[in-house]
Design a binder for these strands. Structure first.
Lengths: 335, 335
DNA sequence: GTGAAAGCGCTAACAC
DNA sequence: GTGTTAGCGCTTTCAC
């Protein structure tokens, strides 16, 4: 139905080869033929078939992106970074949301492999190394983002979560807090583990004993922050500070605090993690550790495309980005 | 490099046709051959080449999504709705961000057409009807979402912005306000125009004269809300209520109000539009008109795929969804 | 400077 | 039930 390279060739009285040459800016075409062909291409509104091209070149100029949920405020920023960098190199991106379900992750990988994307950027649930290996076996380059599947030796763009959590906790300690709780992330993820360990490290380093009940596992959702904060607030010895593994949970926690008629930071200091847009819009504004999200996306796309195009030297780069402490109104001195 | 249908055929001592048959669950294959082939497919880890399949079937099972910016909190919800419905039908989606730039919109359309997506869902800037026609000329189904390019007769999923803005304004009027300003959206979009007209309609209906300086054009960004609210607050006769065309601007406006040492809603009532997640997280919580974003995405994907698969009766459906007034803390009676 | 022909991996007549 | 063959729209080798 749509016009093909053959139609152009026929109308121009040349072979498809010649048309293909001008399409791809190859040399060895006379100026005259070239302009004639170009004119006809324009007239007929010809749009080359990328699928056919993909079949012969074995390149789709498409990359896949596997993330838990685009509605999680972390990902739109990252995704936009990826897209912008990808576009720069002439690639576009297919999204797959998995809700952290292994089954969905598997499906997504299959789908993308089947679509013959040139590479995949992914943020998988922790114990899903199998998928990574499956992709690699198919010869499809990958870059992990945000989360690193343990022991999986593939290029990764992450932040140093341990140091970041360590710094967050130290911020509270430096303010004089000693009773510091932690609502963790999903402990099936390395991110969650690292942030927990950073918290522990800071506490141990200052010789502060951690009461068992101070550590509660969350799942990164607002509801989880709310629910777990309720539990924290009901402890006999209520902590005066808390490090919450992401901002979304911290914002859920706000609600729990307000419902208890307590004040932030007077009664409890809260520090979050990620610096999502929301963080500066709640009241009091949330102290948090800022992730360079957009930049993470750009780095990941660059790494991946360099690997695809074989122009990287070191194909197992790990990019570790630093977070930055953003002090706002939700943390203060003790009592 | 990867294993092809030929490899399977050879190893199974059958023709590629037969393999293709079992791949596509076609009849006329003996159980015995079938299971033999299936076994080999498994052993070799065969993954069918979707590109090749796409070429012969003229179907990629991919749809394109053209939006201004995935970081705009409106779109992740919509996008997720689209993806979920698309997945249900076996489609995946390619994203393109345009920042509302005509040039980028054009590029995105070209790209998607070139990739031979089976259909496109888009939210274009107002005066870009050309692109729509270009797509249609290529025989590619489209569905507009959120914004409708005027006079373009293509299926559309929108909310009734005029009625919605009318209801928002009436909410303020009902609270006793008479001096009601409006920060508009981008007036190059029909959405922006409709919301403006809804505001005017409500005011006229109640016989309230609209002072020229009450209407200021914004661009949907937080900064724009901040900046324009500053101007409103500096008016000699400060309005007591304001309808702001989207929540993001409303939240920017909050900052302007607080900087002026004024209170919401005591000094000025604010009603936004969209009900983004943020709306219930700011302080005071924002009164707004809730859009069924996720549902909009689902509707759009369903419409598009029905058109692609030719299973729709009426191929020019316009789905007009209603918003709902969500009264929170940012609106109150007059002083 | 240009063209003929093969082939990318698959599906779909059609024949047997 | 199964195989042969042509062909989807393009690129690329090789020949002229």
């Amino acid at each position: 139905m749509p016009v093909t390279i053959k139609d152009i060739a026929k109308k121009a009285n040349v072979s498809v080869t010649t048309v293909s040459r001008v399409l791809n800016n190859k040399p060895d075409v006379s100026e005259k033929t070239k302009s004639k062909i170009l004119k006809i291409i324009n007239e007929l509104g010809y749009n080359p078939n990328g699928v056919a091209r993909g079949l012969v070149l074995n390149r789709t100029h498409t990359i896949g992106l596997i993330i838990p949920d685009i509605r999680n405020p972390f990902f739109p920023e990252v995704a936009r970074g990826i897209e912008d960098k990808a576009k720069e190199y002439g690639y576009s991106v297919i999204y797959c949301n998995t809700d952290n379900k292994k089954e969905e992750e598997k499906k997504a990988v299959e789908l993308l492999l089947n679509k013959r994307v040139d590479g995949i950027i992914l943020s998988l649930s922790m114990n899903n190394r199998d998928e990574l290996d499956r992709i690699k076996k198919q010869g499809c380059p990958i870059v992990q983002i945000d989360r690193k599947v343990p022991d999986a030796n593939y290029p990764t763009v992450t932040i140093d979560n341990l140091i970041s959590a360590y710094n967050a906790t130290k911020h509270l300690i430096n303010l004089g807090h000693k009773y510091i709780a932690h609502i963790t992330g999903n402990l099936d993820t390395k991110t969650g583990q690292d942030r927990l360990n950073g918290y522990k490290k800071a506490m141990h380093e200052r010789g502060i004993h951690i009461s068992q009940e101070w550590i509660i596992e969350g799942d990164y959702s607002k509801e989880s922050g709310y629910k777990n904060m309720k539990r924290i607030l009901n402890l006999k010895n209520r902590p005066t500070g808390i490090f919450i593994a992401n901002d979304l949970m911290a914002i859920g926690a706000y609600k729990a605090v307000f419902e208890s008629k307590l004040n932030i930071p007077e009664d409890i200091s809260i520090i979050g993690h990620d610096d999502i847009e929301l963080a500066s819009l709640v009241n009091p504004e949330l102290t948090t550790m800022a992730q360079p999200k957009y930049e993470m996306g750009k780095h990941a796309a660059r790494l991946l495309i360099q690997e695809i195009e074989g122009s990287d030297q070191d194909n197992n780069q790990n990019i570790l980005l630093n977070t930055e402490l953003v002090v706002r109104g939700s943390t203060g001195g003790v009592g």
